[in-house]
């Protein structure tokens, strides 16, 4: 339906990544990010002055402070000054902005990072402020309840079953068995704890490099063969809760369907989202390879999407996979979706 437009693009690869996630971190954002940024620079032998562009993603509401990203910039060591930008989005979109910069031909290397510390605040309240401020946010619906709304819809339409949810929870590793799943009480009916994310503080740093440079910095660069992102309507009453058109469109544009996928690193922090997205993308519900670090077990808002890309790159570096889909999402009920295809082949 949509032609993939990435063939003529400059080849860019993920050449290094470093991440950390913990349930509650005592470090400041700066203290958390310095070791991660240092590690990717050391691995590639690049110092900050040799990096063409730096871009990050984070949220003031999550941090509970205005201009929170300004302090975190200290972790980069931006002296002398750097060419730099910031998105108030998941780091996956910072990577997208950076990829665009590569396409201008202006840069050969870049640093991308993002982080989130949900632990200081009440994340369920924080996420409610992301909803339409006139009609929805004043009701303070929490993220679990909204996901349950969608799950209820899909169950009643017979599009998914309770067994699907249980299987997904087992695959994600939030429970060991179906039996354990069904023993859990409801958290937000029809969802149980095993269907819902455990939040974690964390961050991720990454180095990107263009063709010609990437091969020098990494034995097996994880080439971005396609990347695209789209947004859907915000209003639940307008959206078809059985579909994620933005995900499908972004997947087509990113060339997801052009060849087989060995591994899908999906930013799905609810079982119901995992199942729905797999259906939308025609991915198997029982994949032969699963993520080693499913976001249901450790959801780090603002970093989870970029973490998926880091995990996908890792699978390529370690030769576990050759063509990997990394996905990032934002907004209630996966309203906004980014698809990034990474490959061991430059293409």
């Amino acid at each position: 339906m949509y032609e993939s437009m990435v063939t003529a693009m400059r080849k860019v690869a993920v050449v290094a990544a470093s991440s950390r996630q913990e349930e509650k971190m005592l470090d400041t954002e700066v203290e958390m990010m310095i070791p991660l940024i240092s590690k990717v620079r050391e691995e590639t032998g690049l110092n900050q002055t040799e990096i063409g562009f730096t871009c990050s993603g984070s949220s003031d509401f999550l941090a509970g402070q205005a201009f929170s990203f300004v302090m975190t910039l200290d972790a980069v060591g931006p002296v002398p000054p750097i060419s730099e930008s910031h998105v108030e989005m998941d780091g996956a979109w910072a990577l997208y902005e950076t990829w665009v910069k590569f396409q201008m031909g202006a840069i050969d290397t870049a640093l991308v990072y993002s982080y989130g510390k949900p632990s200081p605040g009440s994340l369920q309240d924080v996420l409610s402020t992301q909803l339409d401020p006139y009609y929805i946010a004043p009701l303070w619906p929490d993220a679990h309840s909204i996901a349950a709304l969608q799950a209820r819809h899909l169950l009643e339409q017979d599009e998914i079953s309770h067994e699907d949810l249980a299987n997904c929870a087992v695959r994600a590793g939030t429970v060991q068995s179906q039996e354990e799943y069904f023993d859990q009480p409801m958290l937000a009916d029809p969802l149980r704890q095993a269907d819902c994310p455990t939040y974690a503080d964390g961050g991720v740093a990454m180095i990107l490099a263009a063709e010609g440079k990437a091969e020098e910095l990494c034995e097996r660069p994880a080439w971005i063969t396609g990347i695209d992102h789209r947004i859907d309507s915000h209003h639940f009453g307008v959206r078809d809760l059985s579909a994620i058109p933005s995900a499908k469109k972004a997947a087509s544009k990113a060339g997801v369907y052009d060849a087989g996928i060995d591994l899908a690193e999906l930013h799905t922090s609810y079982t119901v989202h995992d199942i729905l997205l797999r259906k939308e993308l025609n991915l198997p519900l029982d994949p032969t390879r699963s993520s080693k670090n499913h976001p249901i077990k450790a959801e780090t808002l603002m970093a989870s999407g970029l973490l998926r890309i880091a995990e996908a790159a890792r699978a390529i570096w370690e030769q576990e996979a050759n063509r990997v889909l990394a996905h990032a999402t934002s907004g209630p009920l996966m309203q906004q979706n980014l698809m990034c295809v990474l490959s061991g082949e430059k293409g």
């Binding site: 470090d27 400041t28 700066v30 509970g64 605040g121 009440s122 946010a137 004043p138």
Partner: peptide
């Protein structure tokens, strides 16, 4: 206009050095 008061509480940790 509509008034929709928002109250959110954060419990910050000072970080390793500030501690």
């Amino acid at each position: 206009s509509v008034r929709t008061p928002i109250r959110m509480e954060y419990t910050f940790t000072p970080g390793v050095a500030a501690q």
